[in-house]
Design a protein around this nucleic acid. Structure first.
Lengths: 139, 139, 139, 139
DNA sequence: GTGGTCTAGACCACC
DNA sequence: GTGGTCTAGACCACG
């Protein structure tokens, strides 16, 4: 199975960062099951059309976070995360992004009502896009 | 009057970026009136405890965006922006941030309801903080 | 009799290294008598839950050191070592480890007294653990 | 001031590891004062006759441990460590090395008395070497 | 000047 | 086959 990752080489965000973020999500979500074998660094590098070194760095960073475990000569494995940690991470990440958006809005003197309206609009758009892509249902 | 800007030298966000963002807000909001004289590069650099070269870059960037105008030997002045452009900028910026947050949420498999709940919570917190600080009215 | 070896697959120390070290000790100590037949590569590999290729390497390395001897189609045998060599090896190995520890201590600016104190403490702990396990007598 | 580090390119221990270990000691010891500026990666790379990348990795790893702090365009700085943490690190490191040595000794069926004797001998040798080199006094 | 990212390619250690 | 280390050199972002 090929790992569903897409990188934009032209993004200002460094490639290794993009890849790390997406893998992090996949692991935290359990879409990459604990214990499963990751593709080899060479394989993934070829898939994503980037250097082996970039992937190596990604795996290394994620190992530092305790999400992956690599064994020389054997391969790189996914480490499981507890449900507790998982939802903590989820909330932390999302709330941080929401805070950023709201703070920006207030700094630009939007009203709460204005922000709420835009939020619902974005929610509808993204929800539609998301449902189309993944198939998972979001109430 | 001293320009109300605060930069964190330890933020991962580069200093010039922090300063530009804050100046941009102040100008778009009209808190720096069109036609008014900006502090000199040296002065602002000293205020913010950073290098003059950093401020020079900031002024240059904002001049490139048409928000500032430098007159040789005279100083740097604020350029006015039309109300139309202003609200366009406001909406674009905020919606972008909201989209980012929502996309992140969906990627981590939050439900819409979950996101809505967190959003309201953040709105309340930030709204309180904002009201306390600035005094502007948010419906 | 099953050979008393334990390997940690999660140790940073490579498996072949762990196995070699333990076999080496067993042979030098005479716990694997000179002339006795080693388990087959396949057997030991299964016992230790590792690859046959790993065990093959171990046997080869130890054969290179003169501790084992493989006879085609017959099996692998333990080669005896003289008492003289034995105590030389013992001293060399242990003194090297002690030097490493002491050097580290001095580099971190411990006093000799401090090191002596810790050494006695470690000696007591390990001595107890060892006595419990093996049954050999240590003055 | 040039940083007193020496690397053996022929050691089995990877260069980045050697450098990290020595820097770690220097920082934990306070021989690199908190807040002081490290040499630039290019400078240190030239000093140690290794690649910029190797040094960059070293600095990055130590930053991950909280020992260094790098600011883009500015340089890399030493972060202070509390005395408490310092002595904890010291003890942990040294005791671990001593345990390793003693365990090895017992595995090779040395007596406690034998180990104690060798330890004192090593202590005397290394203590002399150390006093000669550094000048610090170890009781 | 500083550090940050990425490349291509080599060689080694391990299983 | 796997991952681990190191190289030389390029280009970008930052102050």
């Amino acid at each position: 199975m090929r790992i569903p990752i897409h990188v934009s080489p032209d993004s200002p965000e460094p490639m290794y960062h993009q890849i790390e973020n997406q893998l992090r999500s996949l692991i935290w979500n359990g879409q990459l099951a604990a214990g499963s074998l990751m593709p080899s660094i060479r394989e993934l590098a070829q898939d994503l059309a980037c250097s082996v070194i970039t992937i190596r760095r990604v795996y290394q960073d994620l190992e530092g976070e305790g999400l992956l475990r690599t064994k020389q000569g054997t391969g790189t494995f996914v480490v499981g995360v507890s449900e507790e940690k998982r939802s903590g991470y989820q909330m932390e990440t999302v709330v941080k992004a929401l805070e950023d958006a709201v703070r920006t809005g207030f700094r630009l003197q939007c009203t709460s009502e204005q922000l709420r309206q835009w939020f619902e609009q974005v929610l509808a758009e993204q929800g539609a896009a998301d449902a189309g892509k993944g198939g998972a249902e979001h109430a």
